[in-house]
Design a protein around this nucleic acid. Structure first.
Lengths: 234, 234
DNA sequence: ATATGCATCTCGCCA
DNA sequence: TGGCGAGGTGCATAT
């Protein structure tokens, strides 16, 4: 990985054309050939970038006035060419820092998906929803996708449970669609809905109430306390 | 902007929980407080990040075996806390590089939007589509959004034109929806469709043919040649 | 402040 | 390889 801090001008032509006026920025050249240009804000998004596969070639630096119209010491022009013929031209004026580092292959991100874990824990402990509750199955299939949990309450009525880490309005919509489908299934009879999440947004709670869906706020740590420690991930 | 190359372990807890095993990576701390962790590949997306607003605090480094179970020289633990209570914990083991740079405020990206420019140029030169063609109006309004160009051909028939830089399948779908609506408008009579783009993907061409839509490959430079140079952007 | 739609969206899945 | 859907989506705009 090569880190360059430099005053630079950048011109991109691809899906759109874009232009960055001369200013000081970070240029990241990674070992897969990809290039990104970062300003000193926004964590996530580079100002400009070229995804791999792409090739970087260094062009001869032309006289300064041909590029910016301003007298300047141009160090180099880099041209990055992508697979779809898009180009990123970086005109370097003043290099303030330039270092290369050997990082090696990254072991990669392990996404836990607390949602999946919550689902497992709740499947193992359906009594969390109330005394006498039992699990019918996890990932109960419907035509538009699997319902997280299908349970039966103490009276034997079916209940579809949607599990989320953060309960938002779209989760309620999702459960509503499942319920609509499942209620057409005469074998199940009237299916109730439960929206279970660690944190339920007020709007989601209101919408759920409007749809006749119950809400349950989950305590992840308490559920983990009931958990078999051998299932621990790290 | 602070650039740190270090062996580190990262744990995120928010919408999901994610874990990065100890490895050498780039840690980017920007002046807005945001933090991102990059591996040596992928231009666009960091392995992990925290968007602003957030706060970075340095915790005391605990004994090595409490964190990784491996004897190691832990330099520090950084905890980044976001506004929604999500946390990014970075356990630093070995710092290989650490530098800070003053970048200043970036003038920002100027997006040209070639599509808009193409649309203007074609509106000025409807004869590009064929002799005797004339423009009815640009951004012709329909219930589902404006059609890029509404023209009349040499026989006086209406033609809806969709302009794209890159002609993909979704552009054809879009034009199809417009045509469907416009054909219900008895004032326009039968409306033909033209899909105009600098580059038209084979699949899009096939779909357009299937829908009875004509395709026109545009030469941007030739169109610019007819252009008034005073409209030039940079 | 919140809802909606777009993005050089990226990224992973699956046919 | 293309199509589809989700994302810790981010981001701007209109309401």
């Amino acid at each position: 990985m090569r880190l360059v801090i430099a005053r630079c001008q950048v011109d991109y032509a691809g899906r759109l054309t874009a232009h960055l006026p001369m200013a000081t920025r970070l240029i990241l050249v990674k070992s897969d050939g990809s290039v990104s240009i970062h300003a000193d804000d926004r964590a996530y998004k580079p100002l400009n970038w070229m995804s791999p596969p792409c090739t970087l070639t260094e062009l001869a630096a032309p006289p300064a006035d041909r590029v910016t119209g301003v007298a300047d010491t141009l160090s180099a022009i880099w041209e990055v060419r992508g697979k779809d013929g898009d180009t990123l031209q970086i005109t370097l004026a003043e290099i303030l820092h330039d270092s290369s580092h050997e990082l090696g292959v990254d072991p990669g991100l392990q996404k836990d998906g607390v949602e999946a874990h919550l689902q497992v824990l709740l499947a193992e402990h359906p009594e969390t929803f109330g005394p006498g509750w039992s699990l019918v199955r996890r990932e109960y299939p419907t035509a538009i996708g699997p319902v997280d949990l299908l349970c039966r309450d103490a009276e034997g009525r079916y209940v579809a449970v949607e599990v989320k880490r953060r309960g938002d309005i779209d989760g309620v919509e999702q459960l509503t669609r499942y319920l609509e489908l499942m209620r057409r299934d005469t074998l199940l009879g009237d299916v109730r809905g439960v929206f279970a999440a660690q944190l339920i947004k007020p709007q989601a709670r209101v919408l759920a109430g409007d749809r006749g869906i119950s809400c349950l706020t989950l305590d992840y740590d308490a559920l983990r306390g009931m958990d078999d420690p051998s299932l621990r991930l790290f």
